[in-house]
Simulated assay, not measured.
Amino acid sequence: MIFGYARVSTADQTTNAQNDALQAAGAERLFQDSLSGATRARPQLETLLAQLRPGDVVMVTKYDRLARSLRDLIDIVEQIGAAGAGFRSLAEDIDTTTPAGRLVFHVFGSIAEFERARIAERTREGLAAARKRGRVGGRPVALSPEARAEVRRMRESGSQTVAEIARIFKVSRSTILRA
């Protein structure tokens, strides 16, 4: 069976043009969501993926209708493939039911993996350079060493509760417990 999936970002948009193109390309059953692609929880997409059987095909007009990023696209297409189904994008002419289509898709995946590795490498280099200049990342400490010592003294004396100490130092209870 060929399943068509259409998505629009806002409620005032319609999937009519996508639906027409999917039906013209042979989609037998349509699923559609009306929400941002950045939203991972897409109920109709999840329903479609749950119904996939070997030999089925998931078709979209453009791959950005299915996924919010290349990594997300790869994850979804892997999920489709794990069900024994194929993926087809009309605009990009990607069809994982053919050897050439699988090759193109895997080239996309390789490029995405390379780019993720480069981003991680540049991030590590930037953090190392910042450390050399004496900069430390992360959130500033809530309590100075002196304040931590005072918190410990107050807790050991038992004169005040954790909540009272937290109010005095204007921090959360968990910060006091960690101190």
Rank of each mutant, 00 (worst) to 15 (best):
T123E: 00
I74F: 09
L143G: 01
E156R: 15
G134Y: 02
A112H: 07
F114C: 00
R133I: 06
T47V: 07
A85T: 04
G138T: 09
I94N: 01
T39C: 02
Q160G: 06
A41T: 10
L22F: 10
K170H: 12
A112T: 12
L143V: 07
A179W: 05
L48C: 04
A11I: 08
L35R: 15
I119N: 00
I74H: 05
Q23I: 14
T10W: 10
R178H: 09
E113L: 03
R135Y: 13
R153I: 14
F169N: 01
P54V: 01
L66V: 08
A38I: 10
R40I: 15
V151K: 00
R155V: 14
A25N: 06
L143F: 13
R155G: 05
R178I: 10
E78K: 14
Q32P: 05
A147F: 05
E46H: 01
D20M: 11
A27P: 06
L66E: 02
T15E: 03
T123Y: 08
D72F: 08
P145R: 11
A163Q: 12
V171W: 02
M1L: 08
H106C: 09
Q44S: 13
Q79H: 02
A11G: 14
M154L: 15
I176H: 01
I111A: 11
R71V: 10
G138S: 08
G109Q: 04
R7Q: 10
T47A: 15
G84Q: 04
E146F: 07
R155P: 01
L49G: 06
A21H: 00
T10M: 15
V57S: 05
G37D: 12
K132E: 11
V171E: 09
I176L: 02
G4L: 04
A17F: 12
R116I: 09
R155W: 08
I80T: 06
E156M: 13
R65F: 03
P140R: 10
D33I: 04
G81L: 07
G158S: 15
L70H: 09
Q79R: 10
F105R: 06
K170A: 14
T39R: 14
L45G: 06
T15Y: 00
A83G: 03
R40W: 08
F169S: 07
P54C: 10
S159A: 15
I76N: 00
I168Q: 13
T96E: 08
P54A: 11
Y63E: 02
G55E: 11
A41R: 13
E92I: 11
I76Y: 00
A130S: 05
P145K: 11
L49H: 06
